[in-house]
Each structure stands twice: as C-alpha cells, then as structure tokens.
C-alpha cells in the first residue's frame, strides 16, 4: 500500500513540471510572441491611460517591437495537431486550421494596426489612445473567433 502511494506522490512531484514544459516548441514560440505583444502594449497602454508618464522614445520602441512581432512568419508556429482539442496548454481553437485564410488576414490586420501605431507613437501622448483602440479591435476580432475561453 505504501509503495503505490509513494510512487504516486513521486509522479505528482515529477509530473507537474514535466507537463508544463511538454508544450511543443511551435506552441511555446507562438505564446512567446503574444507575451512580447502584451508587454509592449502594456508600455503604450500605460502611457495612453496616464498611469505612466509619456516618453516618446520608449513609446516608439514599444510600437516598433509590435511591428517586429507582426512581421514574424507565422507558418512554423501553427502546425497541425496543436489545437486545444489535441493538446493541453493551448487555447487555439481547431477553427484556425479550418479557416487559415481568415486567420492569416486577421493577423495581417494586427500588422496594419501596429504599423499605424509606430507611425504615431513618437508624436505625442494623444496619438496613443486611438491607436490602442485599433490594436485592441485587431486582438478582439481574432480572439472572438479563434481563442477558447479560459
């Protein structure tokens, strides 16, 4: 009785971190790019809301980073079999793979919004709000359709 319990406990200890690291590399890569997006949106959003003081250089750097993320090739990050029905640890709905053209076009919409932000971010705080709105809409449009709830 003692042995299976100990084995189970050991499995629980060893198993948990193993699971978290078991995500396929493409999934880790795409989640990483979304984290970079969120980090830089946070810089711009903080300035737009006025919780952080406006700094033209930092705003420009954040906007440029968003454009850089939008230019990353997405192909390798979304291989078949990495939807939320196939693996744990992702909220990517299988609909993505059934509507790849629409998914790609929504990603391109984010790129457009990021480019517009980069053109305006260094010109002053007032330019940030409307561009944050456009970026938010691009995020929403895709999440609305292709990301499963938590």
């Amino acid at each position: 009785m003692k042995t299976p319990f100990a084995a189970l406990a050991l499995l629980a200890v060893l198993g948990t971190p193993a699971l978290a690291q078991d995500l396929p590399q493409p999934v880790k890569a795409r989640q990483g790019q979304f984290n970079i997006m969120a980090l830089n949106l946070g810089v711009l959003g903080g300035m737009a809301r006025g919780t952080v003081e406006y700094d033209a250089e930092a705003a420009q750097a954040a906007a440029d980073s968003l454009v850089a993320v939008s230019s990353l090739s997405q192909g390798a990050m979304w291989p078949d079999g990495t939807d939320d029905g196939s693996i744990a640890g992702t909220r990517a709905k299988a609909d993505i793979w059934g509507n790849m053209d629409d998914f790609t076009s929504k990603w391109a919409d984010f790129g457009e919004a990021a480019t517009a932000m980069a053109a305006a971010a260094g010109t002053g705080r007032d330019a940030l709000g409307p561009n944050m709105g456009a970026l938010g809409n691009a995020c929403k449009a895709c999440h609305d359709t292709y990301r499963a709830p938590e």
């Binding site: 919780t51 709105g133 995020c139 929403k140 999440h143 609305d144 709830p149």
Partner: peptide, 25 residues
Amino acid sequence: AADVAYYLESGFTPSFDAVGGHMAE
C-alpha cells in the same frame, strides 16, 4: 476601478491580454 473601466473601453486586461469569447461583444 480604472482597470475595469479601461477593460470595458479597450478590451485590455491590466496585464494587456486582450478580451476574447462572448465578452469581446
């Protein structure tokens, strides 16, 4: 409260994740 109001306006959480699902509507 300001976080909630900004979320309802922009769809961004305080950690700048973006709203999804029916809440996006």
